[in-house]
Design a protein around this nucleic acid. Structure first.
Lengths: 237, 237
DNA sequence: GTTGGTGTACTACCATACCAAAAACTCCGG
DNA sequence: CCGGAGTTTTTGGTATGGTAGTACACCAAC
């Protein structure tokens, strides 16, 4: 009961593929956007009833999300949304910073006209999104920009390989949305990175990227203080 | 049928937890070690019969492995083992090199006496494993060593975050086992890295690690030539 | 020979029903 | 307050049946 009613919206969505996949996508979104709070229990039977399907596809969706680390299935006890693992977020930041620095160096060396224009167009779109208060759209464009960096470097697969790592960081980002990180600063950093890549200045690009990624989680301590219970201090939630 | 008889060994293994998890572990091992060749079809019903369980846990295991990218489920058509994605392996190498270089730099700065001794003990164990022709054990110790690097750097979570990326690379490593990469070279590189960390020489450690990780996939072109069909040229299998 | 349609077999997908095992909870007697 | 028996809840697993795509073989018509 209670806060699971968010999931009722699932009934009003036409599944384009297998239902189990649609449920997994739906729940993943709900968790990453913090519509389902950490610690929330998700009984199979109840989910099945609310979403209007049988237990089987629900169960499969829960397994998918447990593989992604978004929830934890405890046999004979229950399934609950995991807390945001501080160690996981820190590890993710470390991985992402290391990878994206290497990516941006290679991008600065290889990027062609088309890729550079594409990057600048995305940043312009971000400005537009902010002007319309579309914060979610801003985050999507942020992903698109970093993906464009990887494309410019000639290794798009390096970006898709970070998908798992990115999930935990995204939970933090959505949690900090109201907090309104200084988007002007972020956009300025994006422009600095793009400019360095356009100028084929690898060192400057790397420095700009390092600064940018350090700032992403600057709001983390405040968030931990304000939303305890959303986070797991221990090694594994 | 036919080559699925490898899976019959599952019946002679006591499941310590849920059967679905045990099946997933079993199949994951079989795929990574290339006991199940890419392209092999895995019908749910047949697997269930061979392994002596019902279809549901089999299905759940297949879903887990499809999330890991080891197999591909095509609705209403079948489930088959994925080919080793060349783009995925290259992306994995890039990610791992970027991360491990950053890790080893930090390890060289922070490592204490205990961590350094632990690293040297693992390398010694590798020499022992080679002397006994235990190549699988060598690979396990290789993972342990890299994990020890991460521990020494104070960010073990960075290593566990690479698990997904490592799977595809492991398939290549096991495929190259008979090929017998020059283990003497690998061990020499390990010693060089460990020595640089022990001397707290970050630059030397980074250089040694970069050289080491470049060599890991040196056998890849030969493997592609010898085992076509095990690999996917295209972007996604 | 080629094409176009039909029928059949196979597959994953989903629903339903039921039981088992383990943990959590309730409640009552001391 | 405590303790233990019984009940409830939950995931794990089995069994069965139906549905809807897909692929393939076959055959008739051109």
């Amino acid at each position: 009961m209670s806060s699971l009613q968010v999931l009722d919206a699932f009934r009003r969505s036409e599944p384009n593929g297998p239902v189990g996949l649609a449920i997994a996508d739906f729940l993943r979104n709900a968790i990453v956007r913090n519509q389902l709070a950490p610690g929330q229990t998700l009984p199979e039977a109840e989910l099945a009833q609310i979403m209007g399907v049988s237990r089987q596809p629900v169960r499969e969706a829960l397994i998918r999300l447990s593989e992604a680390g978004l929830l934890r299935i405890l046999p004979q006890r229950g399934t609950r949304v995991t807390g945001i693992s501080l160690a996981g977020v820190e590890g993710g930041r470390f991985i992402r910073q290391a990878v994206e620095r290497a990516v941006i160096v290679q991008a600065a060396q290889r990027a062609g006209e088309a890729e550079i224009r594409r990057m600048e167009r995305i940043v312009d779109a971000q400005v537009e999104a902010i002007r319309e208060d579309d914060h979610a759209g801003f985050l999507r464009l942020d992903d698109a920009l970093h993906q464009a960096f990887a494309q410019a470097a000639g290794i798009e697969s390096a970006w898709s390989g970070l998908a798992a790592v990115k999930l935990q960081m995204d939970r933090v980002r959505y949690l900090s949305l109201p907090e309104a990180t200084p988007v002007a600063t972020l956009i300025a950093q994006h422009r600095a990175i793009a400019a360095a890549v356009a100028a084929h200045d690898a060192a400057a690009a790397e420095a700009a990227m390092a600064e940018h990624l350090s700032e992403v989680l600057s709001a983390l301590p405040r968030l931990v203080a304000r939303f305890p219970g959303h986070f797991d201090r221990g090694p594994e939630g």
